[in-house]
Design a protein around this nucleic acid. Structure first.
Lengths: 212, 212
DNA sequence: CCAGAATCTTGACACTTGTCAAGAACGAAT
DNA sequence: ATTCGTTCTTGACAAGTGTCAAGATTCTGG
C-alpha cells in the first residue's frame, strides 16, 4: 500500500516535472524566436543579447535563466529555424498532379520565399558560415543541410517521376546547384537588383527538365 | 621660361606624390594581408583590430592611419583577396591539352585548395554572408562573385571545347553548382570529415562530362 | 492564505570594442 | 644639422559586451 502511494506520488511528481519541462522548453522556443528576429535583422556578428532583449518583450537577464550562454541560445535558434523551413515545399510536392503544376508551385514558393523571408535566409547563410569557424554550430548546421538536401531531392524525384524518369544527378549535386543559385539570387535581391528573382525563376525553369 | 620651370617642378612634385601614394598603398596591402590572417583564423564576427595588430608586426593605431575605419580595412582585405584567387585555375586551363589533363589538373587544384587554403575560403563565405547584411561589402563581393563565375566558365568552356561541344548550362548555373559543392565540402572538411575531399572530387569528375 | 519554488528584473562586474589625439620616431630635403 | 612632413606608438575615452548574483515578483501546492 505504501508502495502504491509512493508509486502514485512518483507518477504525479513525474507528470509535474514533464509539465514544467514543457513550459520551460516553450519559453526557450519563444525566446529563440525573438532572437531570430534580431539575428535576421543584424546578422550574427552584430547581434548582442541586450539588442535581442530590447526587440522582445523580455529583459536581457532572462536569457541566462533559459540558456547557459550565447552559443546555447543561438544553437537553439538554429534548431528552431530548421523545423520551420525544411518542409517548405512539401505541400507543393504533395498536391501537384503534373510536371507543370509542380514547376509552377515550386517557382511560386521560391519567389515568395526570396521576397518575404530574405532576412531569415541570409541568417541561415550567415550561421552556416559561422559553423566553419565555430565547432559548436557544426552538428546542427550539417543536419539542417542534410534535411534541405533531402527536401530538394523530394522535389526532383517527384518531378522526374512525372516524366517517368529518375533525377540525372546526385542529391548532393542537385542541392548544391539550387542552393548556390538561391544564395546568389538572395544577395543580388538584397543589393536591390530587381531582376534577381525573375532571373532565378528563369534559370530554374530552364534547369528542371535537364536535371530530372 | 617661368612656365617651363613651374612645369618641371610640377612634374617632380607629381612624381613624388605618386611615389608616396604607391608606398602608402603598399603598406595598406601589407596591413590587409596581416588582417586576412586573423580574419581567416577567427572569422569576421570575432576579429578585432587589436587582435589583428597582435598577430602582426604593427600596433593597433596604425590601422587608423591607413584606413578610415574597420569596414574600410575589411573592404581592402576583400579586394586584395580577390586578386589572389580569381586566377587560381587559369594555369591549368592554359596548359592542359586534353579533357583528361584538364580534369586532373582541375581536380588536383581543387583538392589542394580545400586542403591548404581552407581558412581563406571560409573567410570568403563569411564575408559573402556579411554582404547580405552590410551594404558596404556588396559591391566588392558581387564583383568577386562575377569573377569567380567567369573563372569557372573558362574551365567549362575549355573542357567543352576539347569535346567539340559547348557547355550545357549558363555560367550562373555552373558557378552555383561548383560553388555549392565546394562550400559543402569545405564545411564537412573543417568538421573533420575525411571523406569530404574525395567525395567532392568524385562528384566533380562525374559531373564534368554531363554539364559540358 | 501562505511558504517555498520558479521566474524574471535590475544593476553591477570585468572586459573588449572602435576611435581618436598627443606626441615620439623617422626620413628627406634644405 | 635642422626643419618639416610622414609614419607609427601609446594611452586614453566612451560605449558596448557576456556574465552573474541579489533581490523582486509571480506562480503553485498544501
Amino acid at each position: 500500500m505504501a508502495r502504491q502511494v509512493t508509486g502514485a506520488a512518483r507518477r504525479v511528481a513525474d507528470a509535474a516535472e514533464v509539465l514544467r519541462d514543457e513550459k520551460f522548453n516553450a519559453r526557450r522556443v519563444e525566446l529563440a524566436e525573438a532572437a531570430l528576429e534580431t539575428l535576421g535583422e543584424l546578422g550574427f556578428a552584430r547581434t548582442s543579447l541586450r539588442e535581442i532583449a530590447q526587440n522582445s518583450a523580455f529583459t536581457h537577464g532572462v536569457f541566462h535563466y533559459y540558456f547557459s550562454d550565447k552559443l546555447d541560445l543561438i544553437c537553439c535558434c538554429v534548431r528552431h529555424y530548421k523545423a520551420k523551413c525544411v518542409t517548405r515545399y512539401d505541400e507543393v510536392v504533395a498536391t501537384a498532379t503534373s510536371r507543370d503544376e509542380l514547376t509552377e508551385g515550386f517557382l511560386a514558393k521560391l519567389a515568395a520565399t526570396l521576397q518575404n523571408e530574405a532576412r531569415m535566409h541570409r541568417l541561415w547563410y550567415d550561421l552556416r558560415s559561422q559553423a566553419m569557424f565555430e565547432a559548436a554550430f557544426r552538428k546542427d548546421v550539417l543536419e539542417i543541410d542534410k534535411s534541405l538536401e533531402a527536401m530538394i531531392w523530394r522535389i526532383a524525384s517527384r518531378y522526374a517521376e512525372f516524366g517517368g524518369k529518375r533525377p540525372a544527378s546526385s542529391p548532393a549535386a542537385l542541392y548544391a546547384l539550387f542552393d548556390g543559385l538561391f544564395q546568389s539570387a538572395l544577395l543580388k535581391h538584397l543589393a536591390g537588383d530587381k531582376t534577381a528573382i525573375p532571373e532565378l525563376l528563369d534559370e530554374v525553369r530552364r534547369l528542371l527538365p535537364t536535371v530530372c
